[in-house]
Amino acid sequence: MLNYIWISLIAIGILVAVGNDVRDEVQNSYRNGIPIEATVAIQKSPTSLRQTWEGDLIVNAEAFNSFYGIKTVKVEIHQPIVINMVTTGEPEASLPLGSASPDLWKEMAKAATSKEKLVGAVRSMTLAPDQRTARLQIVIEPIRFMKTKAVTQAALDYATTAVTIALGLIGIMALWLGVMKVAEEAGLLRIVTRMLTPVTKRLFPDVPTDHPAIGAMIMNIAANMLGLSNAATPLGLKAMEELNKLNPKVGTATNAMVTFLCINTGGLILIPATAIAVRASAGSANPGIIIGTSIFGAGCATVAGVVAARILQRLPRYKKDLEPEVGKEASHG
């Protein structure tokens, strides 16, 4: 199943990206080659040393929306602009993007020559009599294959991110695996394990009740519930390693592993700290209001996951994966 989901994510992603690009090209969504009209509030005029105009490009929201055929811009746009007078040809305009720039332009810049700015050619520039403003017609550089470029970038970025995440785990993994080893040698894990035997016996019938895997799983679930994600991952990986020692078939997930994974992906947590923090920073009158609802939601997820795991593991197609195969390479479904 994972094979199909994995290839679907990639194939759908690439197809949709190409489809979006074709649509953009046909509709000319980014108005390649078409001049946009705007006013410039001039702050600096050219001098003998500097052949540039600097100021703010002002486009009112309606004009911008109707030019690009969108509805999202609500306020008048004030976008910094630098116009460079070149000796031959049309003057070059450069639009450095910042917080005041419209989202569409920021989006377009991702596929532009420079990520930080859009460049364009000034078709015409008419100065007002007081030399403080000018009417402009600018053609912004052509934007093409935006989604395909984004997909390429994402694939490369995420490969790096994966390594960063994994390397970031090393220290914290070492700390908790060290502590767990001490707890194991001292027999502490066995004490924790024995206390919860009535529960674990039912959840993980294939795992001996005093196996170190049980202790690690309990510790992992407890850490998750307290929101100690730094400690939870190493403990969870320790649990997986212990569960793998009971695995009759290397490279294939056991029933206990899947049940344990489902408890983890249910994400039962007593205080959803991240969500609360985001709510508080967004100015909520009662950020903690979602504690109860989250526990309910995560409870549903956990129970459904464990029940689903228990039912699915009985299906013949999943059952046969665990049977030892003789003289044949394991199939990876």
Binding site: M1, L2, I5, N244, V250, G251, T252, A253, M257, V258, L261, C262, T265, G266, G267, G297, A298, C300, A301, T302, V303, A304, G305, A308, A309, L312, Q313, L315, Y318, D321, L322, A330, S331, H332, G333
Partner: peptide
């Protein structure tokens, strides 16, 4: 090093759906 995840993906997605 588990490559054959068996019913982990469907069960995990059912958990997400119910959540």
């Amino acid at each position: 090093q588990i490559k054959n995840t068996r019913h982990a993906v469907p069960a995990g997605l059912i958990a997400d759906l119910f959540g």
